[in-house]
Design a protein around this nucleic acid. Structure first.
Length: 155
DNA sequence: CTGTCTTTTCGTCATGGAAT
DNA sequence: ATTCCATGACGAAAAGACAG
């Protein structure tokens, strides 16, 4: 969605080729604001516009209506039939979108959870490396002092 | 316990881009 | 051109936290 026309989106399918990198859109930013830090909301979009028909809702002479027409080839479909068809299509669309939204949210949750796990793991690894570095520094300083005393004796 | 405020969850709408 | 899908935005309801 880009009401101002300035937002560049990654194609949907491309986004799922490698879900470990979701979201790929460069303009997408999220804010964590739950107690356990797992809920996110987008903050990169403008307000949703109101009014008008969405493309999703757009009626088409080629799909549902044609089915209704097919059922009575000799006459125009009755208003009741048209209404039933529209209602059926709406229910189907709502159901599909409901499912899509659930799926999308699950993916988003999993993605954030995965990131959090990765952060924990990297922090852990970082801590271990720091400790290892400290030990090596100690070892080195010991070795260096031994080495210098040997040199002193030789001189 | 109850009222109030905050956070989370869910369904729906609007929209852009891809597919047909 | 139309349909389909993914996704951000929004509002309502549910759930949780907390002071009095």
């Amino acid at each position: 969605m880009s009401p101002n026309g300035s937002v560049h989106f990654i194609p949907c399918q491309q986004r799922y080729e490698n879900f470990s990198s979701w979201p790929r859109s460069p303009v997408t930013q999220f804010a964590v604001h739950s107690r356990n830090g797992t809920y996110i909301v987008s903050n990169n979009q403008g307000q949703a516009t109101t009014g008008g028909m969405s493309g999703y809702q757009m009626s088409s002479p080629a799909s549902g209506l044609s089915q209704v027409m097919d059922s009575s080839p000799d006459s125009l479909p009755s208003p009741q039939l048209l209404a039933e068809e529209a209602s059926r299509k709406r229910e189907l669309r709502l159901m599909k979108n409901r499912t899509a939204a659930k799926l999308y949210r699950r993916r988003k949750r999993d993605y954030v959870l995965g990131l959090e796990t990765r952060i924990t793991s990297i922090e852990d690894q970082n801590q271990k490396l720091k400790e290892e570095l400290d030990n090596l520094k100690k070892l080195c300083s010991l070795g260096c002092s031994n080495h210098s005393s040997t040199l002193d004796a030789a001189i």
